[in-house]
């Protein structure tokens, strides 16, 4: 009984707090890739990163094709972000600050062969050093299988 009156007060206080807390989303950003569609998502726990690979329509068509032949108008963007814990759920890690944006664009040469232009920069547009070797990186990006989504 003695505990009751303060407990009701606590209850009222808690209720009052709930009413006044007006949360605001932090000034966080989205990173849309215009006219591009998702090819796949990649997690790398050794690097502690999570990445989204986007492609233009020809790149998506390549992903769907059974006979794998790259076309000369494919474009790819790989957006890699740091992994961080989801603020309200221990059990999920999500994309944090963006580490790098890699772009690959196919070109058709007069001889009929395809070459690829590769660039790597950060979100502010500054060029980042290429540490893995471009050829390997380009292959890694253009050969990613399309994630199955009906």
């Amino acid at each position: 009984m003695i505990k009751l009156i303060p407990s009701i007060l606590v209850l009222l206080l808690l209720a009052a707090c709930k009413e006044t807390a007006r949360p605001v989303l932090a000034p966080e950003y989205l990173h849309p890739e215009k006219d591009m569609h998702l090819i796949t998502s990649l997690i790398n726990n050794s690097d502690s990163t999570i990445a989204l690979l986007y492609g233009n329509e020809p790149a998506i068509q390549y992903g769907k094709a059974i006979e794998k032949v790259h076309r000369s108008d494919e474009k790819y963007v790989l957006v890699t972000a740091h992994l961080r814990q989801m603020p309200h759920w221990y059990g999920t890690n999500m994309n944090g600050p963006i580490v790098s944006i890699e772009q690959v664009a196919a070109h058709l040469h007069e001889a009929g062969n395809i070459s690829y232009a590769y660039s790597k920069h950060n979100r502010e547009g500054e060029v980042l050093p290429d540490t893995v070797g471009q050829a390997a990186r380009i292959r890694f990006i253009i050969d990613q299988p399309l994630a199955v989504a009906p």
């Binding site: 569609h37 999920t92 994309n95």
Partner: peptide, 14 residues
Amino acid sequence: KNWTIISSTDKFDG
């Protein structure tokens, strides 16, 4: 598939 991606997650619990 034509919408904007908000986030990507690793839901390691499941």
